[in-house]
Design a protein around this nucleic acid. Structure first.
Lengths: 193, 193
DNA sequence: TACAAACCTTGCCCAACAGGCAAGTTTGCC
DNA sequence: GGCAAACTTGCCTGTTGGGCAAGGTTTGTA
């Protein structure tokens, strides 16, 4: 494994993160439509043109946090034994991720919740969650057998990711209830037969 | 019930449909990015400005067919008895809708399939399917009981809609297999415990 | 250490776009 | 017929994504 991913990569990650944070902060402060890409780039000390090299739009920048979480979740899933029930694997990964989120940069959760009331973002959040859908489906296909493995893997991946999305959305609307609760309740009610 | 929804409404529906058809046709012919909103409006014999009164972008126009199908599905769901298992109700509605689609304007299915290979649309398709999510969740909430009705209704709605989406996507990628087959296989594998 | 190739950032540019506004036109209703 | 509400359109402006090429930085290699 790479101890240090190289200076170039580290710088890129830093810039991406800076843009994400700027986007998130400004969107919370001034509303999503009140922020221009230029303002975000400014805040992160890069040119507007550079912003476009990292994200295809401000919404993508805003949801980069969700994207990173989902990538991490993919890792957690891949780490697990292949001889267990797929839904069990998915549930465990989701709960671990949620714990990590609480223990680690709780910032994410706090600021994420402040996006409540900007419903124009909903469709972009959905999009963020479907980006990893194919990757997850491929992983799950290896863990299934029988007929229609392709289709069933895709359905399972989509169902799982959409459940996670609903849990996060619901949690931003009911900030008093612990995220872990919401996630496990949501997953329980979506568990396939 | 309104026998005639009024001339105004009929004209609007006709314009919306004309824009949708134009968008779909041009997108298939020239690729999604190769088409301008102006060209679509032109083809439908309205001004570019009027296009904006109907749709917020070309992708929304392209997926108006899906949107109509989903609205129809909501009707089919509402028509059904409230004392049956929610998933049974949803499955039946989905299958009926699919039959209708085959019997009626099969055009939709044919041209829908020709969008294959324009993956930039994927996120917008997902968005189209989530538009009705809240409405469906509200309907389902009335049909559930026990704890967490709100959350479970949302999860159920999201799971169902995402399954339908995957089925349609999968069907566009495997045009040889009947849509009804794919839909019922997908729903079966997503059925909650 | 030197140097070339690969890669990033930036400014410049342009076509496309969303949506506010106001004037003109059509429809619904009495 | 005639009035009010709703719709269409043209005009306009600020914003956007992304192509291109000129610099600067990092990396791998010798």
């Amino acid at each position: 494994m790479d101890e240090t991913p190289g200076l170039r990569e580290r710088k890129k990650a830093a810039t991406r993160l800076a843009l994400h944070e700027a986007a998130l902060r400004l969107a919370i402060e001034q509303g999503v439509d009140g922020v221009t890409v230029e303002a975000i780039a400014d805040t992160a000390n890069v040119s507007r043109r550079t912003f476009s090299n990292y994200f295809s739009g401000k919404e993508e920048a805003i949801f980069h946090g969700d994207t990173m979480r989902l990538r991490r979740m993919l890792e957690l899933i891949r780490e697990q034994p292949t001889d267990e029930q797929p839904w069990t694997v998915l549930t465990r990964a989701a709960l671990r991720l949620t714990e990590e989120t609480y223990l680690g940069n709780m910032e994410w959760l706090i600021r994420r919740r402040q996006l409540r009331g900007h419903p124009s973002l909903a469709s972009h959040q959905v999009a963020a969650y479907t980006v990893v859908e194919r990757e997850l489906a491929a992983e799950l296909a290896d863990r299934l057998s029988g007929d229609d493995v392709e289709l069933r893997a895709r359905v399972l991946a989509a169902v799982f990711l959409t459940t996670m999305r609903v849990a996060v959305q619901d949690s931003t609307e009911h900030p008093d209830r612990p995220l872990l609760d919401v996630v496990s309740a949501a997953l329980a009610s979506a568990a396939p037969a």
